[in-house]
Each structure stands twice: as structure tokens, then as C-alpha cells.
Write a protein that binds this DNA or RNA. Structure first.
Lengths: 187, 187
DNA sequence: TTCGTCATGTAATGGGTTACATGATTAC
DNA sequence: GTAATCATGTAACCCATTACATGACGAA
């Protein structure tokens, strides 16, 4: 099951609020900076999403710590239900955790993910990339002659990038197996 | 100006038809295989797009060469206006040619692109990636300490990938400068 | 005969950016 | 003072996938 983009955003927002209460403008900035799937996230997407989470009781308005004389902002924090929901989501390691965009988001919160789950996500991602690689290679064999040099160069470059990514994941997996450190309690 | 996805699709369709007349089903298959931005292109997008191109007189229905006894398919070919329009699009080397998805599509038709234009597109793309890289590095310096090891690993991996891509482009640019081969007449 | 692929579409649905609207605060 | 950034939203528009509808053909 490929996760809807809205679910990804929900996960990311809960994850960021898990690190501490904050307001919409700051969430957007941090989501944009994370330069994953949310590089171009707009207020038109974020604010309604926050409203939905509010309506579902996963987040709640918190008092703005206040900055002398400045207009208070709308600060959100996780509710108990929100923390629980996020914990459930983090524990998942099915395909919704390692497909394309989803992997980037899940990886960003690996520090809050249990070692075992991390391992399964990394392995799932690696398997996914290996499948892609196999498909590309098959196609390369089938069409070797009738490719112009540019298409051939692009294909080879794509292959090398995927191979490199697989090696990177393998390193992470090996490291994870050697030192399976679980997340401690949040500070 | 970032090209709308529809414009990218239009470009790709005209480019494929430039190689010879064909029908919608085949276009979709080839667009999907090209595994760029059209990996998941659906009929719901392609067929209406073909209708639009038809309405604008850039493509026209051509007789199906026919396959004994089989139902004829709806085959399209470029019109004179379509060829001209494609030539105009191919000659462009502004940001609409090297931003993300656009670059993949433009690269796929490099064999039909003049050497000078190819060079400017490659250089534009490289510049774009170098800007990205600089931004990422700045951010890395600003936030070095407060990153957990996973975020740090992801950031470093992203940096390495971008560096590799820049080197790849540099190689292509150098090769292009040494042997600026222009496209011959199509067979 | 049933399943996969070929083949062409349309409609509904979902979802995201752009643009609009508004106002406070800060830096130059 | 004025431009940029902070800050919070809403509405319109664009557009792409999903699902639906339909049917022929080839292989197992």
C-alpha cells in the first residue's frame, strides 16, 4: 500500500511535534528544509492538515510560551492520543515505510524508531531498489543496440546511482546489526 | 519558469512521435519505461493530452499500417506545425530545460538537440545542482551538533550523490566540447 | 475458458500549489 | 519609510491518479 501524501505529511507533523510544541509557520519552514518530499509544501496544505489533526484529537493548541510584547502564535502540541498514534506509525515496517518519498520521511525519524523496525525498513528499501535495478538491467540488455549514446549514458548513470544507494543501505544495515541501539527516552 | 507537467508531457509526446507515428497505448508504454517523470503516467492523463495536441493541430491521425485481421488502432503522427513546434521547444535552454523533471525529459531527446543547446542545458543543470549543494552545505554547518547520527548520515549521502552528479555532468560537458556533434537528418 | 495483454476512452475523486487577504514586526 | 520576514488562514484552480466501462485477441 503506497501511502497517500497526506498520510506522509501527517506522520511528519506528528514527528516534529514529538520533538516539542511549535506553531504552523515553523513547521512549514522545517518541513521545507528537510528537502525531502516537502520542499515545496505550502500553507494551503499545512494549515488545513493541522486542522484535521486537531479535529481528530491528535494534536491540541498549547499556550504560546510568549515573547514579550509580540503577538502570540498558535502553538500546537501532541496529545496523549497523538503520541500513541505516532508510536503506532513508527512501529510499521511494511511497504508504506520504504517506498520512495515515504522512506525519506521515515528515515528522518529513525532516532525515534526501534532498532528492529529500522532494520526491516532499511532492508525493505534495499530490496525495493534491487528490484528496480534488476528491471533497468533487463531493459538494458533487451535494447542495447538501438540506444543513442545519450540514452545509454543516462541509463548507465542511473544504474550506478542505484548501486551506490544499495551499498549505502548495506552499510547502514551492517552497522545496525553490530550496534542495535534503541532510542532512549526523549529529553 | 518551471514547466507545468502538462508541458513536459507534450514535449515528450512530440519527441516520441518525431521518431515515427504510433498509437496511444504504445506511447504510454514507452513513457512509462523511460522511468523519468512518467513512470506512473496513466491513460487518464495521456489520452486527453493527445486530444489537446490534436485540437491544436500539432499531431494528426495517421492510417494504421494495419496488422492483418486485427482491429485498427488510432495512430498519430506529427504535422508540419508539430515538427516546427518541437524544433522550437528543443532549441530552448532556459531554466525550463534543466529543472528536475524537465532535465530528464530534455536529456532523453539530446540526440535530436543541437550541440550548442545541449551544452547550455548541461551547464544549466550543473549550476542548479551546485546551488543546491551549497545550500545543503550551509545548512550542514549551521546545524552540525544538534543532528542525530541518522540525519547526519542522510545529509552526507545526499551531498555525495549531488557531487557525483555534478562530476557526471562535467564529464558530459567536456566530451561535448571536444566533439560537438550535431544531430544528422533523421533516418 | 480464463487470464494477461492490447487498446481506447470517461468520470470521479483527491489533493496540492497559486493567489488572495490581512496584519504585525524587524532590518535597512 | 519600506522592503522582507513573520504569521495565519481561505478559495480557486489545476491536474493527475484511480476507478470505471468496454471489447478484442492470444496463450495456457
Amino acid at each position: 500500500m503506497v501511502p497517500r501524501r497526506a498520510q506522509l505529511l501527517e506522520f511528519a507533523v506528528l514527528g516534529l511535534l514529538h520533538e516539542g510544541p511549535t506553531h504552523g509557520y515553523d513547521l512549514r519552514r522545517r518541513l521545507n528544509e528537510a528537502l525531502g518530499p516537502f520542499r515545496a509544501l505550502s500553507y494551503g496544505t499545512l494549515y488545513p492538515a493541522l486542522k484535521t489533526l486537531l479535529g481528530r484529537g491528535l494534536i491540541a493548541e498549547a499556550p504560546d510560551p510568549g515573547r514579550r510584547g509580540k503577538r502570540p502564535r498558535v502553538v500546537y502540541e501532541l496529545t496523549a492520543a497523538g503520541k500513541e498514534h505516532f508510536a503506532d506509525l513508527v512501529a510499521r515496517a511494511d511497504s508504506s515505510a520504504y517506498e520512495d518519498d515515504a522512506f525519506d520521511v521515515r528515515f528522518a525519524f529513525f532516532a525515534r524508531t526501534e532498532s528492529e523496525v529500522r532494520l526491516r525498513i532499511l532492508e525493505g528499501r534495499r530490496g525495493r531498489l534491487e528490484d528496480d535495478l534488476e528491471r533497468v538491467r533487463e531493459r538494458a540488455v533487451r535494447s542495447r543496440e538501438r540506444l543513442d549514446s545519450y540514452t545509454a549514458a543516462l541509463q548507465q548513470h542511473g544504474e550506478e546511482r542505484a548501486e551506490r544507494e544499495v551499498r549505502w543501505l548495506t552499510e547502514l544495515i551492517d552497522a545496525e546489526r553490530r550496534h542495535p541501539t534503541d532510542p532512549g527516552p526523549q529529553p
